[in-house]
């Protein structure tokens, strides 16, 4: 980033003064509420799988898959972005939001074709998540391995 001149700095101060602030308290409350509710739904699904004879640990995978399906489906129906407008991080952070970040660009870029449109744009947000998730897991695994020796 370039360094600001004195004039630009003065202007920045004016902008900071005039710029409307997001409604912090309301946003945090909504994020907490919706994020919490999504996790409660996840808990319900998990309990269902446990009642079907899965162990708690085994139930994680089918629960994630089901939640991903719900997030993807609600995105397709055009509902998820309406939830997101109110909930902010409350619907972005749960794994349903990860599904939303995959389906929304994939749908939108259908007209650019099924290879360079749908299939490549799917990973606009999800790609970085996978890259950083897997790389950090790799590094931690490597450290763990070295300490075990």
């Amino acid at each position: 980033m370039q360094k600001l001149t004195k004039e630009q700095q003065d202007y920045q101060n004016l902008v900071n003064l005039k710029k409307p602030k997001p409604p912090y308290i309301k946003n945090i409350f909504m994020a907490f509420l919706v994020g919490g509710l999504i996790c409660v739904i996840g808990q319900g699904i998990m309990n269902f799988f446990v009642s079907r004879g899965f162990s708690i640990k085994e139930a994680g995978a089918p629960t994630s898959a089901t939640m991903v399906f719900l997030g993807a489906f609600l995105t397709g129906l055009g509902i998820y972005d309406k939830i997101g407008k109110k909930a902010g991080a409350g619907s972005i952070i749960p794994i349903t939001g990860f599904a939303n970040s995959i389906v929304s660009p994939a749908m939108e870029f259908k007209r650019e074709g099924y290879v360079f449109g749908v299939a490549s744009k799917m990973f606009v947000v999800a790609g970085p998540v996978l890259v950083y998730g897997m790389t950090s897991a790799f590094i931690i695994g490597l450290i763990y391995y070295l300490f075990k020796l």
Binding site: L33, Q43, A89
Partner: peptide, 16 residues
């Protein structure tokens, strides 16, 4: 689940 999940999302909101 509600409290822990909600709290994690609230932290995300503060960051954003």
């Amino acid at each position: 689940a509600f409290i822990v999940g909600g709290a994690i999302c609230a932290i995300g909101q503060v960051l954003m």
